[in-house]
Amino acid sequence: MNIFRLVGDMSHLLAIIILLMKMWKSRSVAGISGKSQILFAIVFTTRYLDLFTSFVSIYNTSMKVFFIGTSYVTVYFIYQHFKPTYDSNHDTFRVEFLIVPVGGLAFLVNHEFSLLEILWTFSIYLESVAILPQLFMVSKTGEAESITSHYLFALGSYRALYLLNWIYRYYFEGFFDLIAVVAGCVQTILYCDFFYLYITKVLKGKKISLPA
């Protein structure tokens, strides 16, 4: 465990906590894409099936359980508990255009042709694009609350920090996972436009609003 990995994980944890707090305190899921959150629930579920087959550490197990659990709570909040505040009219990204190609790619390009490995690969690929419905929603409504921006920044930073972690692990541990690295690059690149807006607007006290 290096510093980049640890800070990355903490950033991921923070993103999830920010999102849950936003929903709980404001009693609203306005501005949050339920589709992205469903995709994240699928990502965690398919990635952490190794909880049943291997034990790495208490840290590893508790983080995995936390990520799976909170992803379902988030989906529950959006589609049940705070459903009246969910803005489904603006959450219109077609997720089948992500799931189908990503599923096909995981089937074709993986480290090992076994069920768990293919599902792990699927989750890595899917995570890299799972934020698209959310980014689509922000661009469609043309704005994002500050708290939603903080959430997106923490969530995007997590994979960017993992990239540094992989560079570190490559040099000091000889560890290299091409699938994770390529997907991690794609994922981080998708956030670049948002990062720019976050730094130039949100950090200066303005909320993100895009010209119509």
């Binding site: 994980d9 590893n60 972690n165 560890f175 996972d177």
Partner: peptide, 10 residues
Amino acid sequence: KGEVEGKDEL
């Protein structure tokens, strides 16, 4: 230890 491993990461 190579590519198939890596599940220590989240």
